[in-house]
Amino acid sequence: MARVRKYKLLKGNHVKQTIAIVEDDAQQRSYYADALRAHDYIVVELEDRAQAIAAFDEKLPDLAILDIALKSDVGGGYEVCRYLKQREASLPVVFLTSRGDELDKIYGLQLGAWDYQTKPVSLEYLIVRIESFFQIKQLTSTGNNSESSNRSGELNINEKSMQCFWREKEINLTPTEFSILAKLVEVDEAVSVDELIKATHQGVVEDNTINTHILHIRKKFKKVDAAFQCIKTRYGFGYQWSCE
């Protein structure tokens, strides 16, 4: 890790964050870049795996936005993600792709991506997500997680640092999963699928995407507690956090 040079994130910082966009379509890439630059980010535009890896060897960005299919390299984005995670596990990676299959999503999230958004994206939402990721990243790196702690029975979540503990054991959730869980524990009653979709800050999301996320969240909880049963399905409506 000695070779890794990165920008230190400071409170009330004036240091610009670097975002790498790996996207083979020049037009889309330039739209993302323009939108991000307008929000004062330094943007590095890269069009394929080779170019991306060469650039990252030189210098790692603070956040990476990856398309999965890069020209004829159908899984190129995954490989770039894997490379980045090897270099720095805590680096936020956002997949932004036209591949919306559940299997693709699962794979992407398993690789350690913070988010998986399917095209078409709302540039507004994208900016909001990226800003929140930088905040999370700053909070986790500074270790300041005592604030905004929210307890719900044996669950302990920190919305700012996006950390989640179940019976004192940390559960590693992706930001999207964390948003869903936070929405569920916010109220005592059931939360509709539509509300959960809104909470994920994504454009058009199918019901089934939420189902997939819920399944993943349940699995992650069951890993540390096999008897975990607190996320209840409310058939025809949505889900409810209830440990009774």
Partner: peptide
């Protein structure tokens, strides 16, 4: 991909 371009 083109839909995304149009959307943006």
């Amino acid at each position: 991909n083109p839909v995304n371009t149009i959307s943006m």
